[in-house]
């Protein structure tokens, strides 16, 4: 269910979550190129837990809401998809319930591009950065901010286990009727 908010950004309700992380081949993970920071954290449960590819560990905030994750790039990048791993079964009142995605050049001009409501999610949650207009398939930005506005059961601090950020590959592999993978086949697969 999607509804227009007063600001014009998209608000979506998502429930469930995928146990497997499945992403299109023409997307690449961009998070490794960024500097990641959080508004607060409990010692031992810092920002690195969001990026360690381990679903047992988690970032735990340690301050007032909203809890912020800042993803800053040195160059402008195209971003298409954010994937979070959250687990209501394990984290209960620490599980985010309302998440806002903001983008901009820096802290001074962040604009909210999407608000998502999560309903007891367990697993990977996909947040597309495409706008209402189907032509807006990505955002071109220096910075992304993920704000946890509220938690389930009115919890104060939050747990997020993983965050992945995807953008389009610079040179995506052209779609073939046959799945050719050798360099020679790909080289001659399109007219130059």
């Amino acid at each position: 269910m999607a509804a227009e908010s007063s600001e014009g950004e998209e608000e979506t309700k998502l429930s469930g979550g995928n146990q497997l992380l499945i992403v299109d081949d023409d997307l690449t993970e961009m998070g490794k190129k960024a500097a990641w920071s959080v508004s607060s954290c409990k010692p031992g449960n810092g920002v690195s837990s969001l990026r360690d590819d381990n679903l047992e560990t988690y970032w735990q905030s340690d301050g007032g809401q909203p809890h912020l994750v800042n993803i800053q790039f040195q160059k402008k990048v195209r971003l298409q998809l954010i994937v979070l791993y959250v687990d209501f079964k394990l984290d209960e009142s620490y599980t985010p319930s309302k998440v806002s995605i903001r983008a901009g050049d820096g802290f001074h001009n962040l604009k909210e591009i999407k608000t998502v409501e999560l309903v007891k999610p367990t697993g990977w949650v996909y947040l597309s950065l495409s706008g209402v207009d189907p032509r807006d398939t990505f955002v071109n930005t220096f910075m992304l901010q993920i704000a946890v506005l509220s938690n389930h059961l009115n919890g104060r601090d939050t747990h997020v286990r993983q965050i992945k950020v995807y953008g389009p590959r610079p040179n995506p592999i052209p779609h073939q009727p046959f799945q050719f993978t050798s360099r020679e086949f790909i080289t001659y697969s399109s007219i130059r």
Binding site: G31, K32, K33, A34, A35, W36, S37, V38, S39, S40, C41, P43, G44, N45, G46, V47, S48, L50, R51
Partner: peptide, 9 residues
């Protein structure tokens, strides 16, 4: 702030 800031390898 060591736990609050992380950079790619």
């Amino acid at each position: 702030d060591y736990g609050s800031i992380s950079f790619g390898e």
